[in-house]
Design a protein around this nucleic acid. Structure first.
Lengths: 338, 338
DNA sequence: TGGATTTGCGAAAACGATTAAGTATGCGGA
DNA sequence: TCCGCATACTTAATCGTTTTCGCAAATCCA
């Protein structure tokens, strides 16, 4: 590896001069600077990130804590999409990302220790169990932190508008004339709570009664459980006219149950998902769903974190809400025209 | 941050002693070692990765080059699954992973330069354009490298058995009595070539003729193109009895075309995919496909790379083939029983 | 012309670790 | 008693940068 020392020797100057020339300091003559840069290029010089980080305490590395409760992990398009946009935005700003885990060498440590070990400049925390003490330790450690889809006092948060999104989706469905809704929700999490809130808020506002037996527990991304839940709903004396699924993927389970029962979507029963993953656009009939703006979610999280890292004094800590939009498919019947 | 200096002061020894005690060197007294370790724990000491890397030239960081030609990127479950298993295995061995990209600071560089910048100990190269000069530069740089699904002379490779997999899948289909096959393939890549080879090899061996008009170009992960290609196939004077799709996801396009034509799977026409992603198991009818062992692919790539890094003398460079397995669904009719 | 100021560069310390080489101590054996 | 040799530690150099301070030469102003 060619280092500044080599360039210095080649140019007949000191390493200090090389450093300053390469970093654009002002107290270097134009000619010297140009010569140094040219020679550096010719010799294929590249900064040594470790040395720089050691000296400056800035690694240009941001940690990403991304533990998914139910294995699957990146298999969920929602997560992989958010991760990818975090990566893209970080790279655009000159940062690399490092997955925060509990190993360093052959030992186990905490997430925070791993961050200290790598000297990350900040952390994006997403899709974890926000009650895990180790996660909380990290969040309250003083490191610049941005959380996704969860809020902490005094910490930056980027959140998807689950309440507003579900409220809008519900209003859309009701607007199509549906008055008997069923809701299969995911595991008990902040996100689930928000979506239920949005759902009930819309129903209440629009004067749509909700039957208790039509609110069922399913699970995100779980086709089997949603298949079961759907069968349960179809077996009711009076069938709901539209079913809300935890997400687009789990809708497949509902779809199967519905087809199996000899019913058609949307003629006999309507359905909506949540997420707006690619699958929703390609199934037939196309699924009506609420599209979360996952690219913006990741991008904003990274951008806010970097803002926080680079301008700790002026960056104001607050929550940033990312809005989604309705992805209208063909899975909701228009009852007003009948 | 508490450093070795702090521990040394606290214990009344030199930093050298602290370093050796913490790293398990032998020339330190038992009592001293224990005291130092205890104090280090109490003070919440953590190694500074930058300092260590600077001194030892080992970063315990492996680079992952993962550029997907057609955007989507991690959205493709195949890739995200491979990536995740690379990550898991690396972490198990005490390595972190860094995405290799072309930015450092606000400048553009080559992939190789980025690797030098971060001082990665080795690189896994997957899912890139293997003809890109910048990729080749990296592969031939002398850095420890493992490629996935592509082979270079003198470089370690982990590859999915596309030839054998497709051959086995084809044999299965033919075994079910199908004698008129259609094959929609993906873009021209090594992987596509291998699959076509496997397909034709099986057909030839089994004496199954293949009609020219039944080999069509589709695209991986592209529902629309496969929808079109399928329509084209269905419009033929005599319909093939089974269609091979580029992958499980693009099959959805074919499925839609088939349903639209008023045909049923597998009663009227059969279909198979490739990959074995989750979707294949949850659509109805379940898709018969070849399941690639993506967890093993990523795991082996990481394990081999680390072997190469840690034992450069003894690790033997070769190719490692990961076998998949048949994922039998309900999308292929058994014509032998008719 | 002479003093003040600016400009351009170098010397050296520091960041936090690792490691080769050196030193003090204790102990056994001849 | 003295040598030899472990044992347990310290000293000091080093990795590649950054950055403060200092200094000489050049330039400016009166």
């Amino acid at each position: 590896m060619v280092s500044m020392k080599d360039i210095a020797r080649q140019c007949g100057v000191s390493v200090a001069t090389v450093s300053k020339a390469l970093n654009g300091q002002q107290d270097i003559g134009r000619e010297t600077r140009e010569k140094i840069r040219r020679v550096a290029d010719e010799m294929g010089y590249m900064t040594n990130a470790s040395a720089r980080a050691l000296k400056t305490s800035r690694s240009y590395n941001i940690g990403v804590l991304f533990v998914d409760p139910m294995q699957g992990g990146l298999a969920h398009e929602y997560f992989s999409s958010v991760l990818d946009s975090i990566r893209v935005e970080s790279e655009r700003c000159g940062y690399d990302i490092t997955f925060i885990n509990r190993n360093v060498g052959r030992r186990q440590t905490s997430y925070l220790q791993h961050c200290l070990y790598r000297g990350v400049d900040g952390v994006v925390v997403a899709s974890v169990d926000f009650t895990d003490p180790m996660v909380l330790e990290l969040i309250h450690s003083g490191l610049p932190v941005v959380t996704i889809d969860h809020m902490f006092n005094g910490r930056m948060a980027v959140i998807s508008d689950n309440v507003a999104g579900m409220e809008a989706l519900t209003r859309y469905v009701v607007g199509k004339g549906h008055r008997d809704l069923a809701f299969i929700h995911g595991e008990q999490t902040t996100v689930t709570d928000s979506r239920l809130t949005g759902f009930f808020r819309a129903c209440e506002a629009l004067g749509v009664p909700v039957r208790e037996e039509c609110i069922l527990q399913g699970a995100y991304h779980d086709v089997t459980r949603c298949y079961e839940a759907t069968k349960q709903l179809l077996a009711l004396p009076t069938r709901p006219s539209c079913i809300f699924f935890p997400d687009d993927f789990s809708y497949i389970g509902g779809y199967n149950a519905i087809v199996e029962a000899g019913l058609r979507i949307p003629e006999d029963i309507s359905a909506v998902g949540y997420d707006g993953i690619r699958l929703a656009r390609v199934v037939s009939p196309r699924l009506t769903t609420w599209q979360q703006n996952t690219p913006a979610l990741g991008r904003e999280a990274a951008a806010r974190l970097i803002e926080l890292i680079e301008h700790p004094k002026t960056a104001l800590i607050d929550r940033y809400v990312v809005s989604g939009c309705l992805l209208e498919g063909e899975s909701v019947a228009d009852l007003t025209k009948r």
